[in-house]
């Protein structure tokens, strides 16, 4: 019981102070592992790998996993809820504020700056994924041959799925499902 409460407190703190996305929770997890011994550094590394190949935000997956290995199913659920709690509270407060001020020219002015920035950040994240998925940086480093840098089959598949997605308006989950099957069959 004590551990459960502690677990909630620790993940609530993580949710409150980790600003800027899933990976921002990592330093908190390392600290938690050192302080409490609930899970090891190896567990954290293991979980990063799992998070990358399962749906859901990394921070959330971390909370469920750490909660589960410490206190079972209940621990997993409680840790995750504790992590999400500060987000929900803060955003509801901001929403109330925005309801009042969203038509003010100042807030509109700020949003004019935020929107292209938001787009830029998402583009950067996309390029990060593209680097992993569409380039063979390791092969290029080994051979030094510039033509080896492009992972042509992957790029070809990216173009195909992109065109299908836009042209036939496929459901996102269907695109992901198809891609998983193609991945298993072809092995990019």
């Amino acid at each position: 019981m004590m551990t459960l409460i502690q677990l909630c407190i620790e993940f609530f703190k993580t949710g409150l102070f980790a600003v800027g996305g899933g990976l921002a929770t990592l330093p908190f997890l390392y600290e938690m592992s050192e302080k409490t011994g609930w899970f090891t550094e190896q567990d954290i590394l293991n979980l990063i790998a799992i998070s990358e190949s399962t749906p859901g935000a990394i921070g959330i997956n971390m909370a469920t996993y750490a909660g589960y290995i410490t206190e079972g199913v209940i621990g997993g659920i409680m840790a995750t809820l504790a992590l999400a709690c500060p987000s929900i509270i803060v955003i509801i407060l901001i929403s109330k504020f925005l309801d009042r001020f969203k038509d003010s020219p100042v807030v509109q002015g700020i949003f004019q700056g935020l929107r292209p920035a938001s787009t830029g950040l998402i583009a950067a994240a996309g390029l990060g994924v593209a680097k992993l998925a569409l380039l063979n940086l390791d092969v290029y480093e080994a051979t030094g041959n510039l033509t080896d840098i492009l992972d042509l089959p992957s790029i070809a598949y990216a173009v195909i799925i992109f065109v299908c997605m836009r042209k036939f308006k496929l459901h996102t989950l269907l695109c992901i499902g198809i891609s998983a099957v193609v991945g298993i069959a072809v092995g990019f």
Binding site: V129, F162, G183
Partner: peptide, 17 residues
Amino acid sequence: RAFSGIRICVCALILDA
């Protein structure tokens, strides 16, 4: 292997977004 395919799909999805 499944994820190698999903990752490519995620690139296309983000580009679309």
